[in-house]
């Protein structure tokens, strides 16, 4: 899995995950979210447009990130999840907690 963090104006960190988010990669994702919150701001967008697979360990990492962001006074929102990721969010009833948006702008509207 390739992981890229980009800091956008307005204090939003976009973390893009290219590949599978599972028990092998969950720890790295947690670290990246933690770093974004500590180094930049507590508003995190996780770009899942190239995340081919999400399992329960990966979902656990996102929940962990969501809680960390909220505690720091921010939020964690998902951007363009793939079909399989949507399936998992749907099955686990996590849609209302981990909210998905079609683009970064929709996740964190500027203005």
């Amino acid at each position: 899995m390739d992981l890229v963090s980009i800091q956008h104006p307005g204090g939003i960190t976009e973390v893009s995950l290219d590949g599978r988010l599972n028990m092998v990669t969950a720890a790295r994702v947690r670290e990246a979210i933690h770093e974004a919150i500590v180094a930049n701001s507590p508003n995190v967008a996780v770009d899942l447009s190239r995340t081919s697979f999400l399992d329960s360990s990966g979902l656990g990492a996102l929940v962990w990130g969501f809680k960390a962001a909220r505690e720091a006074g921010g939020d964690l929102r998902l951007v363009s999840p793939t079909e399989q990721v949507k399936l998992v969010l749907d099955l686990t009833n996590m849609n209302s907690t981990l909210r998905s948006f079609d683009s970064l702008d929709e996740a964190y509207p500027r203005g």
């Binding site: 329960s56 656990g60 929940v63 962990w64 209302s96």
Partner: peptide
């Protein structure tokens, strides 16, 4: 059954059963 929304684990088995 699915655990609480804030739980970081425990979803694997309920997921299998749902899938």
């Amino acid at each position: 059954g699915m655990p609480d929304a804030m739980a970081e684990s425990g979803r694997g088995i309920p997921m299998i059963q749902a899938l």
